[in-house]
């Protein structure tokens, strides 16, 4: 079967959830090979989870430069593997960095860039991807017209399924860095989200809007999120009013999320917000205004005071969790 390269998205010795989704998508196209680009020792920590999602091979590209330079070491390693292994396709997570890695790779190796796929089907190099564009208003199917398909896959866009793989290791070289063309990473400050899942990776998102009324009252959103094991989001109105930090903004100018469950508290549902969340599987809305547009897309809506409804739901959810 044709080999499909998957760039492993990892942080602090753990694979990110999207890596399982990438390997699952790769299995639909052929035989997945995981590519780990990172600091010495990273791959050893990741191997077990890569095997559990069906990675047949693990290419290990480790060096200090790989960890200390930005984007290009990943492109360099993938480009070298494309040359030596002639894979049928390359899959990368469609996060901010993955989109950049996949774009550069496609430009360098003469590949077809397929961005932000929420579905992958076909076999080998005849992959067709499904994309959700304009914030989910259009569904597009696209494929490579020529060249190697380089596909970025939206986190949470498809479901990961476990499968045992051999995860046979092969060490590959990290090509030398040209300092004139490369960018050094001089420091990192990861998001301190506490114990909450990352917004774009979470299966449940609880968001608050203008209706929350103040930064202090956002606690009501956070409590419900914690009871559901959810990430916290905010509408642009809430962020612009200073209720919640901008990195949690969901919508056209913020993050696009497509969780299993999206709960909107005090969010009217302006088109800008809907663009970031309307592909969620199930949408629940609580709003005082019965005319709020969010109810047009909600699977279940409650017209009422979020400060009464949300705490009650928090209590119910906690009860059921036991």
């Amino acid at each position: 079967m044709a080999e499909v390269l998957v760039l492993v998205d990892h942080l602090d010795g753990e694979v990110k959830k999207v890596t399982g989704e990438l390997l699952t998508a790769a299995r639909a196209l052929g035989e997945p090979s995981a590519v780990v680009v990172g600091a010495p020792g990273d791959a050893a920590k990741l191997k077990e989870s890569l095997a559990s999602y069906g990675a047949e091979k693990v290419y290990v590209a480790e060096s200090e430069d790989a960890a200390n330079y930005f984007v290009t070491p990943k492109v360099d390693v993938l480009a070298a593997l494309v040359e030596s292994k002639s894979p049928a396709a390359v899959l990368v997570a469609a996060g901010s960095e993955g989109k950049e890695v996949s774009g550069r790779l496609a430009a360098r190796v003469g590949g077809a860039l397929l961005v932000d796929a929420v579905g992958v089907e076909g076999s080998g190099d005849d992959a067709t991807v499904t994309q959700s564009v304009f914030g989910g208003a259009f569904v597009v199917k696209a494929k490579a017209a020529k060249g190697l398909p380089v596909i970025s896959v939206r986190p949470g866009g498809l479901d990961a399924e476990q499968a045992q793989g051999a995860a046979a290791e092969e060490t590959v070289e990290v090509p030398a860095v040209d300092p004139a063309k490369a960018t050094r990473i001089t420091g990192r400050e990861p998001v301190v989200g506490g114990d909450r899942p990352e917004l774009t990776e979470a299966s449940v998102v609880v968001s608050g809007g203008r209706g929350v009324g103040s930064a202090e009252s956002f606690e009501v959103v956070e409590k419900l999120a914690d009871a559901l094991g959810a990430a916290v989001g905010a509408s642009r109105a809430a962020v612009d009013s200073g209720y919640y930090p901008a990195q949690f903004q969901v919508g056209q100018t913020g993050k696009t999320v497509s969780p299993q469950l999206y709960i909107a508290l005090g969010i009217s549902g302006a088109i800008q917000h809907r663009a970031g969340m309307q592909t969620s599987k199930t949408i629940v809305a609580v709003n005082k205004d019965a005319e709020a547009p969010i109810f047009e897309i909600a699977d279940y809506g409650v017209v009422g005071d979020l400060f009464k409804v949300a705490p009650q739901l928090t209590e119910e959810a906690a009860k059921r969790k036991g």
């Binding site: 901010s96 960095e97 001089t186 990192r188 400050e189």
Partner: peptide, 10 residues
């Protein structure tokens, strides 16, 4: 980005 802050220099 969603990964937090990264300091870059070139």
């Amino acid at each position: 980005t969603e990964d937090g802050l990264t300091h870059l220099e070139a």
